[in-house]
Amino acid sequence: MNTDSLRDRWVFIDFWSTTCGPCIEEFPNLKKLYGTVDKSRVEFIAVVDERRGASLQELMRKHELPWPTLKMGTGTTMEGYDIYSYPTTVLIDPKGKIVRKDIRGEELNNVFQDLQLLQ
């Protein structure tokens, strides 16, 4: 993924761990939302902490996750991102400013609808 492709676009980042039950439970909602967003205006990215005993590739295959996924080192704290627990989500506006954090489920759907980011 090239960061130039993210300019002037909304970016939704989902930080999750391969052993995080609530993270994995959110996949169906994220997939449904991803299927309705205007992909010319919004990019989804996953940043994953792969833990022992849970394969990232296996989870991605099983849940058919279509968005780009970046594998990070292990550990709950991700320096520079202020991530201290999973799941953590971040919505960044086209100017690069974080506008929402930790939104999931129906609230996430409502935010995308309010911002007119759905097709």
Rank of each mutant, 00 (worst) to 15 (best):
Q113M: 09
E106L: 12
A46F: 00
I103H: 06
S40R: 11
N110V: 04
I98L: 07
M72F: 12
E107A: 14
I24K: 01
G96W: 10
E50S: 04
K95L: 12
Q113K: 15
V48I: 11
K39Q: 15
M78W: 09
L115Q: 09
K31L: 15
E64C: 05
P66K: 06
D102V: 00
L115I: 03
T69G: 04
V47Y: 06
Q113H: 12
V99C: 08
K95N: 13
V48W: 03
L91S: 08
W67K: 05
G73W: 00
P22M: 11
E43S: 13
E107L: 11
S55I: 02
T76K: 05
A54M: 03
E25C: 05
N110G: 04
F27P: 02
L91V: 13
E26D: 15
M60N: 02
E50H: 03
R104M: 11
D93R: 06
L65K: 06
N109L: 04
E64I: 01
K31G: 02
C23E: 05
N109Y: 14
E26R: 07
M60L: 15
L33Q: 07
L70F: 14
K95V: 04
P94Q: 07
L91T: 09
L70N: 06
L108T: 01
T69V: 15
E50D: 11
S55E: 02
Q113R: 15
I92E: 08
Y34G: 03
Y81I: 00
D102L: 06
Y84P: 01
I45Q: 02
S55H: 01
G105T: 09
I45M: 14
G96E: 02
M78Y: 11
P94D: 09
G96C: 07
R61D: 13
A54K: 11
R104K: 15
Q116R: 14
K32W: 05
E79K: 13
E79Q: 12
Q119M: 08
D82L: 10
G105N: 08
T69K: 07
E43R: 11
G53I: 04
D49N: 15
V42Y: 01
L117I: 09
E106H: 10
E26Y: 08
C20S: 12
L59N: 02
E64R: 14
R104D: 00
N29R: 10
A46I: 06
M72S: 14
I83R: 05
N110K: 15
F27Q: 02
K97S: 10
V42G: 02
L117V: 10
V37I: 15
T69M: 12
V37Q: 01
Q119L: 09
G21C: 05
V42A: 03
K32Q: 13
C23A: 08
Q113T: 14
P68A: 10
P68T: 05
T74M: 10
L59G: 03
Q57K: 14
G96T: 10
M60F: 06
E107T: 13
K32T: 14
